[in-house]
Design a protein around this nucleic acid. Structure first.
Length: 241
DNA sequence: CTCCTGAAAT
DNA sequence: ATTTCAGGAG
């Protein structure tokens, strides 16, 4: 059995991250939809490409193909005309095949479980979790490089340095899951905000190079960098009078 | 930070 | 019935 993280601590991260996200979260095109097809398109494009670039192409793509049926009817060549400029040209093929499969074998319904989603081309655990969270409203952990960095810092004290990469990864996914709400009134929005918040927080505050710890609202419970000594005052005594 | 409430999941 | 949660009060 695995030891769980202090619930009070988890609550602290949850509350503060969601508060931060409401104020500073990014307003991205794919955050205005819950259409699983569109979430899928955005996530597959996002896998290897930066947000601003994806935003343009995403808009163009859904304008050309508003529904998954439209992709299924289209020619691969036309689909790729839009996606190829992003680089990593396999993605146009993923989206096309995925649309074909969903339309032909699943009556146009995108799966709503992680294992089924992962059967689709180009869909791994991360993308499956994103579709569950952002489209189906079922809070599911997602760990991308941003999230891994954020969790790795917040929970540095829970991540043994001796772990193999596989063990480390497993712990990160467990932490991402523990952080999500599992009950309560606001479950759906809670998961959505938390997962979106983790990614935006990793992109804007807890960045890889020089994390902006000075403006981090979670400073007090962060274990990065490895506990710095409070600077010892040198000459501190003023005597009045 | 703790405690309380009302809502939701099991 | 019990547990987990968000949000507000203290």
């Amino acid at each position: 059995m695995r030891a769980q993280v202090d619930p009070v601590r988890l609550r602290y991260y949850r509350r503060r991250l969601r508060a931060w996200f409401r104020e500073h979260g990014r307003d991205l095109p794919w955050r205005h939809t819950r259409d699983p097809y569109r979430i899928l398109v955005s996530e597959i494009m996002l896998q290897q490409t930066q947000v601003p670039r994806v935003a343009e192409v995403y808009e163009e793509f859904v304008a050309a193909y508003p529904s998954i049926d439209d992709v299924a009817q289209a020619d691969l060549t036309d689909v790729r005309r839009i996606t190829d400029p992003l680089g990593y040209k396999a993605r146009g093929g993923y989206i096309k095949r995925l649309a074909d499969e969903v339309v032909e074998y699943r009556a146009g319904r995108v799966p709503d479980s992680v294992p089924e989603l992962m059967e689709l081309p180009g869909v791994g655990r991360y993308t499956a979790g994103a579709v569950m969270t952002f489209a189906h409203g079922r809070a599911t952990p997602i760990v991308d490089t941003n999230v891994a960095r954020v969790l790795g810092r917040w929970f540095a004290d829970c991540l043994p340095p001796g772990d193999t990469p596989a063990q480390h990864d497993k712990r990160l996914w467990a932490l991402a899951g523990a952080l999500l709400p599992s009950r309560g009134r606001d479950l759906q929005r809670g998961g959505w905000e938390l997962n979106s918040g983790l990614m935006d927080f990793g992109a804007k505050i807890c960045v890889a190079r020089k994390p902006r710890c000075g403006v981090c609202p979670l400073r007090r419970r962060c274990h990065y960098p490895p506990r710095r000594r409070p600077p010892e005052p040198e000459v501190v005594v003023w005597l009045e009078g």
